[in-house]
Design a protein around this nucleic acid. Sequence first.
DNA 1: GCTCCGGCTGAACGTTTCCTGAGAAAACGT
DNA 2: ACGTTTTCTCAGGAAACGTTCAGCCGGAGC
Lengths: 234, 234
Amino acid sequence: MNVLERVEARLLVVDDEPNIRELLSASLRRSGFEVVTAADGREAVHFAERIRPDLVVLDVMLPDMDGFTVAGRLREMGGQMPVVFLTARDATDDKVAGLRVADDYVTKPFSLEEVLARIRAVLRRTRGDLDLPSRLQVGDLELDEEAHQVWRSGTPVRLSPTEFKLLHYFMVNTGRVLSKAQILDHVWNYDFGGDAGVVESYVSYLRRKVDVTEPRLIHTLRGVGYVLRLPRGD
Amino acid sequence: MNVLERVEARLLVVDDEPNIRELLSASLRRSGFEVVTAADGREAVHFAERIRPDLVVLDVMLPDMDGFTVAGRLREMGGQMPVVFLTARDATDDKVAGLRVADDYVTKPFSLEEVLARIRAVLRRTRGDLDLPSRLQVGDLELDEEAHQVWRSGTPVRLSPTEFKLLHYFMVNTGRVLSKAQILDHVWNYDFGGDAGVVESYVSYLRRKVDVTEPRLIHTLRGVGYVLRLPRGD
DNA sequence: GCTCCGGCTGAACGTTTCCTGAGAAAACGT
DNA sequence: ACGTTTTCTCAGGAAACGTTCAGCCGGAGC
């Protein structure tokens, strides 16, 4: 699929927790980004200087220095690298103090879809990046990521945040079979403890809202997963 | 995204506090301006001479020389660069007197909407800049920035200062989803310590005053933010 | 036909998010 | 100094949301 064949941009991911770092970098690479990782502020500044990333994903809490300090250093380097911060959900102080200088931020625990959405949005804003289409279309189903809106056969459809994220994940992966585990890993927060039953529920919700007319787009493959695609002359 | 596709003008931002400098320059760039920053009077004069900005945003309190002195130097350079001063709210009389040489001024702590409004106003006055429309319109909702007036379906609406700033921010960003944090950062003073609840209140006020008739223009996107737009069925 | 199994969906629950009215405090104008 | 306007906070209630679960359905295999 086309997503995998092109390098969208070069990213620098900075987080001291190896799990988060690997989760993010693996997912971002799969989405077509070139990724370099750093574990602390010192490394971050060093790599930023060397590889000149198009965007930096930066944890606010780092062992050696504050994320905002790192962001300041990056800005001093010139070449305006946009920054997407990662922050704890209850860090109210951080938000008031430093997040204003961020181009955007995501709260932990996040879902991969969330992080990807923010990164795409910032790249679109700061680079006017046309390689990152805001509008996805499969058959007469349309989704506009920026406007956060969905249409089926031209009529707008109201979706909840989770429904929207799920549909977006389906549409980015049109024609590819997605297992429930895969969906859970991308659309739900990484600390979600529940089972895949919730995916069935949300697929059900989605079908009711966007897949009631022919041709059906969301198909079940028993024992395998789901796939969104136009039925080809089968 | 028309805001990003055009360079409105070239600005020079002068402030010794890095936070303020970054906050302003990032926001101004996002609004389509080309921005160069300086940290003190010496740098300011130097950059002004080199890049010949269309307007200078100048902090009155600088480490090496008075903002008024800097303004004097700029004037001696000819080519009339308009100046918007940044000053503390408790400015004494002598300083207020000095502000008469300014084309306009904003008191700290300011809101980004305030600074942007002053810059736009000065550019309109001094350059007759038609790229900066004074009148915004979405559906039958109209806002005149210069006249500081709002109409819905032709009938005038009275808005408080904050309500006006909020509506203006919505209208400049028609069709774009704005999070409460984003709104807070742009419409409220940068030192505002409260939470996003106040945004909900003011959106409520706005709706009551300008959005009681169909079609509704201000829409809530649960868990995401607000957006002002004409409902599109296409 | 019967059973087993994976998937579907309606109902129920607790939680989150949002809206709005009321009121206190500050700013403003006269 | 006084009343008015404006700003902000708070809390109740309503609606939307996320999650679980149990019962149902239908296809696959026996």
